Simulated assay, not measured.
Amino acid sequence: MQQFLDVAPGIRLWTEQRGAADAPPLLLVMGAQATGVGWPDELVDALAEHHRVIRYDHRDTGRSTWSYDDRPYRIADLADDVIAVLDGLGIERAHLVGMSLGGMLAQMVLADHPDRWIGATLIGTMALSTTPYTAPDGTVVPVGELPGIAPEVLEMWARPVEDHGPEAEVARRLEHWRVLAGGQLPFDADHYAALERRVIAHTGHHRVGTAHGRADDSGMLRTAELARNEVPTLVIAAPAEPVFPPPHPQHLAQCIGGAHVVEIPGMGHALPPAVQGPLAEAILAHTGAGAGAGS
């Protein structure tokens, strides 16, 4: 079921729900400039066997309002949208799954609205905390000395984007996914090409959004609040992750009270078919303890 929600003056978000209406809700929050369609249908359907799964388009993505150029907003407003989606759908409490920027938004709403969450899963993201990382050998590593984004990713992001039509744009995005996938698993070009064609069809155009990279990201740290967290939290570790490489997942789990880590072999900063089954199993194992705990 698809539905549009008015979450702020002049801002309307596209949402989709799958699964039984009376199943425990599970909200999926995608990364920067990524639509809700970026959550693969196969993964969504696997989760929907046990949950009322909600995915949505951020502002300036997909079918939601594209407003940044006329009315700039903050990353914090995207976090407010997470709560607004729950409110708009009449959901009191839900499980939460966030990837990349979505994982940062998830941390913000975990810290600011802990009463709204049954549990949380964080994928491909970094800690919104100044707490240093303690390595297995006891070495203490300041946050600023943790590994950064892989050079090949930065190089890709620095390239100017030119419009040569939708098929050329699909090809450009395919190469982007090749870098993000991390190289440990065979690259499934057909999967990513089909994904991007679905995204373009869903959005209605192939223009590249840049709003989230330009938005004010001040005030995102939640060091003390995350340390006090009591919401059961799963951190997914991806060994081939090129954006937030290990030990970022382990650091994230150290920063969030009660968090634990599960590794998905071969995973990078992407959701190809090879990782969808293990990822669904990990998420469902985590939500099992809270299933039926509220809606």
Results as ranks from 00 to 15, higher is better:
I83D: 04
I83V: 15
A84K: 14
A84I: 14
V85H: 08
L86A: 10
L86G: 10
G90P: 15
I91P: 12
L96D: 12
L96Q: 07
L96R: 01
G98V: 02
G98M: 05
M99Q: 11
M99E: 14
S100G: 13
G103Q: 01
L105G: 11
L105E: 06
Q107Y: 01
Q107G: 00
A111W: 10
H113P: 12
P114Q: 13
R116G: 05
W117D: 09
I118D: 15
T121D: 10
L122C: 04
L122S: 10
G124P: 12
T125N: 01
L128N: 05
S129T: 10
T130P: 08
T134Q: 08
P136Y: 00
P136M: 05
T139L: 10
V140Q: 06
V140K: 03
V143F: 01
V143L: 09
G144H: 06
G144V: 07
E145V: 11
P147N: 07
I149K: 13
P151T: 03
E152M: 07
V153F: 02
V153Q: 01
M156F: 13
D163M: 10
D163K: 00
H164M: 11
G165R: 06
P166S: 04
P166H: 01
P166E: 06
E167N: 12
A168G: 13
A168Q: 13
L174M: 13
L180Y: 14
L180T: 05
A181C: 01
A181G: 08
G182E: 08
G182F: 03
G183S: 11
Q184C: 01
L185G: 04
L185R: 06
D190F: 00
H191S: 12
A194T: 14
E196Y: 13
R197F: 13
I200L: 04
I200S: 00
A201K: 04
H202I: 10
H202A: 04
T203N: 02
H205Y: 00
H205R: 11
R207W: 00
R207E: 12
R207P: 05
V208E: 13
G209I: 08
G209V: 04
G209H: 05
